[in-house]
Design a protein around this nucleic acid. Structure first.
Lengths: 213, 213
DNA sequence: TCCCGGCTCAACCTTTCGATTGACCCCGCC
DNA sequence: GGCGGGGTCAATCGAAAGGTTGAGCCGGGA
């Protein structure tokens, strides 16, 4: 019997998972969590945690995943989310997720992935797996950590001068990084780079919590 | 008895909605649709359509909504989505949606909104309603159609020259629009404008279907 | 060991962008 | 009819960004 924890902030999704998994005789849902913090708290109860990546409030699913997998003998974490952006995928895998499934997966795949995760086997959605092999096959297209950091600040609207100050660099260095970024992305301006990076999911295109001014 | 059509590309969400709505005696789910096209086809069967805005494939929920509400004596459309960005909200309302609910809404609210929609009454999630009143209270902050159009192209990485050609304008006009955009958003560069607009959901921050190069 | 790649910086030049001023047309509203 | 706002365009100027060349440092892999 595989004990499951459902961590998702949407009641409808939790209901859907309950309904979909109810028919499987070897699954038992031992707890649900509507926040990432709650998921970390209840993780000990389960063998496999079904983890969403984005929660309405502060803590991200990736951080919760890291907290859960850091513990010895902790449960496996199967990420189950809507998004297949590179930034999300990498964050989840680095956080120690055992598998990564998209919410549009058919129920059979979900059950299979849960059983695989329970055995400690990695289970990746085909789209996610494709992204990863692309990345490893052509590492040249991947931005270095520093380049991604600079690009992230560009995406926030900072000028080169502001970025240089933020990172304690000279403007020359910032420009240098950006030249490399442009070359790797095949663009020739900062806004085009941001657009390309957002489209490819290289930067975490979003969690800006917006208050309506 | 209110006849419902569930239009969502995620099997899990459809299961969740079925489960949540099953307990309501005055609801009957007459059909489900996994694509926007399918939703348009089956719309005639229902009194109220629960419509997601983003589908995996081409057609958007907003366009499907427009197609459905364009028909005489068509069903009401209650948008039920994850996103509360201005661009999504406006697109749905302009398309003729009767209500707009977020997927993190509690099931009671969902049932209430469906009954309201069936009666032809508008039902808006509090967060969505707040966005709308903010917009009407301070129309100065809202971008004009042309300004939003220009900003959208800026977000795609086009230069002023490229934008002027795309819209059959002079560069001077493009600059003029951008000056107004910057003033309204309180920024002073194109990338900052894109960041601000994305954060506030003024531009449709994304459905770029990306193939991994 | 040497070489490569990432990270850092400098100087210089060209292009683009942003800011300002001023102008005209058209439409809807008072 | 006047007035305001949106949309269009022009000219100018300074600032920022982009492109190029060149160079030094450091760490890891061949």
């Amino acid at each position: 019997m595989i004990r499951l924890l459902i961590a998702d902030d949407h009641p409808i999704v939790r209901s859907g998972l309950r309904a979909v998994l109810h028919g499987e005789p070897d699954f038992t849902i031992v707890a649900e969590a509507a926040t990432a913090q709650d998921a970390v708290r209840k993780a000990g109860l389960a063998d496999v945690v079904l983890m969403d990546l984005r929660f309405g409030d502060g803590m991200s699913g990736a951080r919760a995943t890291a907290a859960i997998t850091a513990a010895a003998h902790g449960p496996r974490v199967l990420v189950l989310t809507t998004y297949d952006s590179d930034a999300d995928i990498l964050a989840a895998i680095e956080a120690g997720a055992t598998g990564y499934l998209l919410k549009d997966a058919p129920p059979e795949d979900l059950a299979a992935a849960i059983r695989a995760a329970a055995r400690g086997q990695s289970a990746l959605a085909p789209a996610v797996a494709a992204r990863l092999v692309d990345r490893t096959r052509d590492p040249a297209a991947a931005l270095s950590a520093r380049e991604a950091e600079v690009l992230g600040l560009v995406a926030e609207g900072l000028s080169n001068l502001a970025i240089s100050r933020r990172l304690h660099l000279s403007q020359a260095t910032v420009k240098s990084h950006l030249v490399h970024v442009y070359a790797k992305l095949g663009v020739d301006s900062r806004t085009a780079a941001v657009a390309a990076a957002t489209a490819r999911g290289l930067i975490s295109g979003h969690p800006v919590v917006h208050r309506n001014v």
